[in-house]
Amino acid sequence: MRDTVTTPALPLGDDALILSHRLGEWAGQAPVLEEEVALANIALDLLGQARVLLSLAGDEDELAYLREEREFRNLQLVEQPNGDFAHTIARQLYFSTYQELLFEQLADGDTELAPLAGKAVKEVAYHRDHATQWTLRLGDGTDESRTRMQHALDALWRFTGEMFEPVPGLESLPWATFHDVWTTRITATVEQATLRLPEGPQRGAWTAGAGRQGLHTEPFGRLLAEMQHLHRSHPGATW
């Protein structure tokens, strides 16, 4: 039944939902209180996006809590574990730069996604700014922070190619241009942070990139187990 859902709201909603959950895992763990609050606020913005998008695709609770792993259509990038703070920032930099480009374009279009995109793009601009400022601070910081930031950028690089595979239902968007502009923006930030752009391939035999088809990485199952267990253990629970 749920296999019949084909709206592009589903993969984009899954991106927002899963990244929101990952950022929520920082609660109680962030390096400083301000970042605890910042990451929770970004998670809340993403959860708001997810609720609107999944509601366009069906019943938001059913889609979030009752689908199996292979029914999720999110990018593999957003399901990657938080790692250290630099990993989380690298994931934020890659994803928010992409999401801003995508939502800018959708906001100007006439699809059912336009109202949400027009609303969320203004919030995402703050997410991208947050990630950019931290990349500069960690990259152009101490030897330790610089090493970790570079390592994080390198480690997540192979998950970035998937972002530019056309989302089913949105094939008419300028995906090649997204990739070019994204690369230009990431390069500018990375260079300003005195770091180097990762050199490995973004797509190919040794890269990730089947999240949109429902294939996910090993940590995703554990994320779902935690995210879904309350709803599955107590169906229809309210408080």
Partner: peptide, 9 residues
């Protein structure tokens, strides 16, 4: 500026 996000988004 201390933090881009405060008590609320």
């Amino acid at each position: 500026l201390l933090s881009r996000f405060s008590s609320t988004a």
